[in-house]
C-alpha cells in the first residue's frame, strides 16, 4: 500500500472540510477500501477517517422511522435495530463474518454500492432516504449502477432514514467464498404497498422487481408470485452462476423472503 496522509476529525464539518481536497477520500470501516488500497486499485493521497465522529454513530427510532448513523457498524445495527426493524437487523447480522461486522459500516456499504452487497437491497427495498452533509437523496435516485451512486466528490453520507415496514425479510443465497450475496431479495410490506429489491443479480446493481411488487401488493404470499420469472437480460454471469441461474434465484429468494416476512 502506498503511504498517504491520515486525518481523524471529530466532527462532520471538519471531515467535509478535509475532503475538499480532490485527492482525499473518506475511510469508514475500511473493510472494502483497505483491501482495495493494498491491491493498488485505489491510492488516495489523504484518508479522512469517519470512525472518530460521535454524531455519525447510533441507531435511533423516531416514530415510524429508524435513523442509523453512517458510521454505525453492521454488528451494532444487528443488535440495536432488532427491536424496531427485525428484517434490517437480520440483514446486518448476515453480512460477511463477525470481524467484518465489527468494522464495516452502513455508510461505507451504501457509498460503495457493490452489486452483491446487502444494505443496498434494504435501502432500495424500503425506499429509504440517504442523508448526506449537504442534502437528502431518495434511495430510488441514489443507486446508479455497479459501484456508482449519486454522491458527489467529497460528499459524505451522514445517516440513513428507513421507513419501518409492517413486515419485512431478507433472503440471501450466500456465495460461500466471498460471503456476499450470490443473489438476495429484500421484501417490505407497507400500508401503501409492497417493495421488492434484488441484489447480487444484475449487472446494473441493486434493482426493484416491479412485477413482483405489483403482484404482492394485492396478495402478499409466495403463491402470488409463483408464476413470475425475472428476465436473464443483463444478469451477472460468472464462475459462481450463469445469468439464467441468477434470474431463477431472483424468484426463489423473493418467495423465501415473502414467506419469512409472513
Amino acid at each position: 500500500m502506498y503511504d498517504f496522509n491520515f486525518l481523524k476529525p471529530t466532527s462532520v464539518a471538519d471531515a467535509v472540510a478535509a475532503l475538499i481536497d480532490e485527492d482525499a477520500q473518506p475511510l469508514s470501516g475500511g473493510q472494502t477500501l483497505i483491501p482495495a488500497m493494498k491491491a493498488r486499485l485505489n491510492a488516495p493521497g489523504t484518508l479522512v477517517s469517519l470512525t472518530g465522529i460521535p454524531e455519525l454513530v447510533g441507531v435511533c427510532c423516531a416514530g415510524d422511522t429508524l435513523v442509523i448513523g453512517a458510521a454505525t457498524t453492521h454488528a451494532q445495527v444487528a443488535r440495536d435495530a432488532a427491536g424496531y426493524f427485525p428484517g434490517l437487523a437480520a440483514l446486518a447480522g448476515q453480512i460477511g463474518d463477525p470481524a467484518v461486522r465489527n468494522r464495516g459500516t452502513i455508510g461505507g456499504s451504501l457509498a460503495n454500492n457493490d452489486p452483491s452487497a446487502c444494505y443496498p437491497a434494504a435501502a432500495l427495498g424500503t425506499g429509504a432516504t440517504i442523508v448526506t452533509d449537504r442534502r437528502e437523496i431518495a434511495a430510488d435516485d441514489f443507486f446508479q449502477g455497479m459501484f456508482t451512486t449519486a454522491l458527489e466528490n467529497g460528499e459524505i453520507i451522514t445517516s440513513v432514514r428507513f421507513p419501518i415496514p409492517q413486515a419485512s425479510a431478507y433472503a440471501k443465497f450466500v456465495q460461500p467464498a466471498s460471503r456476499f450475496a450470490l443473489t438476495a431479495a429484500f421484501v417490505a410490506r407497507y400500508a401503501s404497498g409492497v417493495r421488492v429489491a434484488i441484489t447480487g443479480a444484475s449487472e446494473n446493481g441493486v434493482f426493484r422487481w416491479a412485477e413482483a411488487e405489483a403482484a404482492l401488493s394485492s396478495d402478499f404470499s409466495a403463491e402470488a408470485i409463483s408464476g413470475l420469472s425475472a428476465s436473464a437480460h443483463e444478469m451477472i454471469a460468472d464462475l459462481h452462476g450463469t445469468a439464467a441461474y441468477r434470474a431463477h434465484l431472483v424468484g426463489v429468494m423473493t418467495r423465501r423472503a415473502v414467506t419469512a416476512a409472513g
Binding site: F6, G30, A99
Partner: peptide, 25 residues
C-alpha cells in the same frame, strides 16, 4: 486480503482482522 482470519485479534474485546485496519485509526 481480509478473507482468512489468521490475523484475528481483539480490539476493545471485539474480533477484528488485523490486516484490514490501520494502526493509526
Amino acid at each position: 486480503t481480509s478473507q482468512c482470519g489468521a490475523c484475528m485479534v481483539l480490539v476493545n474485546g471485539q474480533a477484528v482482522k488485523a490486516c484490514s485496519v490501520l494502526a493509526a485509526d
